[in-house]
């Protein structure tokens, strides 16, 4: 899948502003960004719902709008919301979507795997949010697609269901299915994604593997969490020369310098003397959340 310089506007508002991305077959690509960053618009343009106003989109070598009929059976789509008749039952809805495909998955297997058996005869509108979410995921994979677009596949799921969904997404990729998903969960990205695109204001602000993103700009940096208000000057005195210590936000400390085993040991020894337990200790590695906040700012959207 290839997106080149995509531009999409709604009236005066630019939703996607020259976005490019490229997705390898069999990879799991996560599109990350604050609300309103243009993630869903990008995904829906790839799904053929919108015609690119400028730029080019090809999916499995096809144009999603003009060659939509050839593309649709090969792609599984999970919308962010809705997509099922309010009066339909989970298994019935799944059976219906399966009937539109040539070689669908076994309904019973998918129902069992995603725990949809408990939905019984309850209509879609009265299912719990998590059940609706799992049904939408099931609808995306039931037709044995080559490529799936999952728009926030695990938002609103409980931890068990989230893990079940992660396992399933991992297995999809292992079986050769290309996965493109949007998410707000950093843990999801770290666990699943082989490639990440961070999108803000309709543009890609960073791209790479999760490891690359977390390592970028983290040379010479050790971070840890501990009670706020530690004496940073005292810590600095205990460190090798030419270091720098800052409490970046309450309870979160950043030590910059030439990272070495001695430097790490000096930090932990200093903490040990004060009966302080350093948590979330990261050596030359940002957390994905830090990367995300640094790239997209902290104001609410």
């Amino acid at each position: 899948m290839e997106v080149t310089n995509l531009v999409m506007r709604y009236g005066d508002k630019v939703a996607v502003d020259g976005l490019s991305m490229s997705v390898e077959v069999g990879s799991i690509t996560a599109v990350l960004g604050p609300n309103g960053a243009g993630k869903t618009t990008t995904l829906e343009t790839c799904e053929g719902y919108r015609r690119p106003q400028s730029g080019r989109v090809t999916v499995l070598g096809l144009d999603p709008v003009t060659q939509h009929r050839a593309l649709a059976p090969r792609v599984g789509v999970m919308l962010q919301a809705g997509g099922a008749w309010s009066g339909s039952r989970a298994e019935e809805m799944l059976r219906y979507v399966a009937s539109l495909h040539a070689n669908p998955q076994s309904i019973d297997a998918v129902v069992g795997r995603l725990g949809l058996g408990a939905c019984g005869r309850t209509p879609y509108r009265r299912l719990s949010g998590g059940q609706q979410q799992r049904l939408r995921l099931a609808m995306a994979i039931i037709g044995r697609p080559e490529l799936v677009f999952l728009d926030e596949p695990t938002s609103g799921l409980d931890p068990q269901a989230r893990r079940a969904a992660w396992d399933l997404i991992g297995e999809l990729s292992a079986a050769g299915v290309t996965v493109v998903l949007t998410t707000h969960y950093m843990e999801e990205v770290e666990r699943l994604a082989s490639d990440v695109y961070v999108v803000d204001s309709g543009q890609v602000v960073a791209a790479g593997s999760p490891a690359q993103l977390m390592a970028a700009g983290a040379r010479g940096l050790i971070t840890f969490e501990a009670p706020s208000g530690l004496d940073t000057a005292d810590l600095l005195a205990a460190l090798p020369p030419e270091c720098e210590v800052r409490e970046e936000r309450p309870g979160r400390y950043a030590v910059r310098g030439r990272v070495s085993p001695q430097m790490l040991s000096a930090i932990t020894t200093w903490c040990a003397k004060r009966e302080v337990m350093p948590g979330q200790l990261n050596v030359e590695r940002h957390t994905l959340e830090d990367v995300f906040l640094a790239l997209t700012g902290k104001e609410l959207r």
Partner: peptide
């Protein structure tokens, strides 16, 4: 079947008449 799904791609549309009937 419940424990393992064969997720290897096998895409394709059902015949048009079958889709219309199902709908």
């Amino acid at each position: 079947a419940i424990t393992r799904l064969d997720l290897r791609p096998a895409p394709g549309s059902a015949p048009a008449w079958a889709m219309v009937r199902s709908h």
